[in-house]
């Protein structure tokens, strides 16, 4: 396993002739096997930061280190999960899961068996030969997890992975992620709008201010592990949630930019 060290990352985009500073001097050390969430107002640069870690966007200044080595581009050491599961619709669930090993040319006789086992772990036994369109939203996300786990990433980068799911399915997926993380202990950077989700899942919650995006506070979440959804009823949980929410609210940023939907998600 490897940690991720975001070091003094800055990024600007050209926007209609002017240059807009999106990220200013952001530093977040994420330890090996640590679960860190990134919260902040809409447009503060969370996705941009995640894409920099993923190697899809280059920082103007600063660097991202994975195991002391600077990130130069995308790689299978960093799995990516998006708001939409992004399964390839022309492949069955099993073939989606096998995409990574096939792309890497690392298929061995045991690969298929391992994919089937992994699909069993994520609760998709019996759906191996279904196409993504034949699955429910939650099942698609679990298939996407299986596909990502197949290449044994040391780091999992997630951008609001459950943002498009209904409340009940989302709760189920959060529990699923907690269990998976207990098993594998990969390093996680999770972007979310859902303060409750951040507190439930994380070891630490990093709060960002916007315009430009800056790290304002990192709040440790010392809730006992392994966690289940029940922990959200404890007084400690409620306190932590309040603390994170305050930090997000008080972080400088374009209040007017927060849409009603986004604002609702914060509370």
């Amino acid at each position: 396993m490897a940690g991720v060290h975001v070091r003094n990352v800055s990024k600007s985009f050209a926007h209609g002739g002017s240059i807009v500073e999106i990220l200013r001097n952001v530093s977040i050390p994420v330890g090996e096997g640590e679960f860190v969430s990134l919260v902040g107002r809409s447009g503060c640069g969370k996705t941009t930061l995640l894409r920099i870690i993923g190697g899809f966007v280059h920082a103007d200044a600063g660097s991202v280190l994975v195991d002391e080595a600077p990130v130069r581009g995308p790689g299978s050491d960093r799995g990516m999960l998006f708001q939409q599961p992004m399964l390839f619709p022309w492949l069955t669930v099993l073939d989606n899961t096998l995409f990574g090993p096939r792309a890497e040319g690392s298929c061995t006789p045991g690969t298929r068996a391992r994919a089937l086992e992994l699909l069993g772990i994520v609760g998709l036994a019996g759906f191996e030969f279904h196409y993504p369109k034949q699955l429910s939203g939650g099942m698609m996300h679990r298939a996407a997890f299986a596909r990502a786990m197949m290449v044994d990433p040391e780091i999992l980068l997630m951008d609001e992975p459950f943002g498009a799911l209904d409340a009940l399915t989302r709760t189920g997926m959060q529990q699923f992620l907690l269990d998976l993380w207990e098993r594998r202990r990969f390093t996680v950077v999770l972007v979310t709008h859902d303060v409750e989700e951040a507190v439930l899942l994380s070891d630490r919650v990093a709060v960002m201010a916007s315009q430009p995006g800056e790290l304002v506070e990192t709040i440790p979440i010392p809730l006992p592990r392994p966690r289940t959804y029940e922990v959200s009823e404890s007084a400690d949980f409620v306190d932590l949630k309040r603390r994170v929410r305050r930090a997000v609210e008080h972080a400088r940023g374009g209040t007017a930019m927060v849409g009603a939907g986004r604002a609702a998600a914060l509370y």
Partner: peptide, 11 residues
Amino acid sequence: EYIEAARSLGA
């Protein structure tokens, strides 16, 4: 995101 998913799967 299809391309990014593929690249982070090792393609």
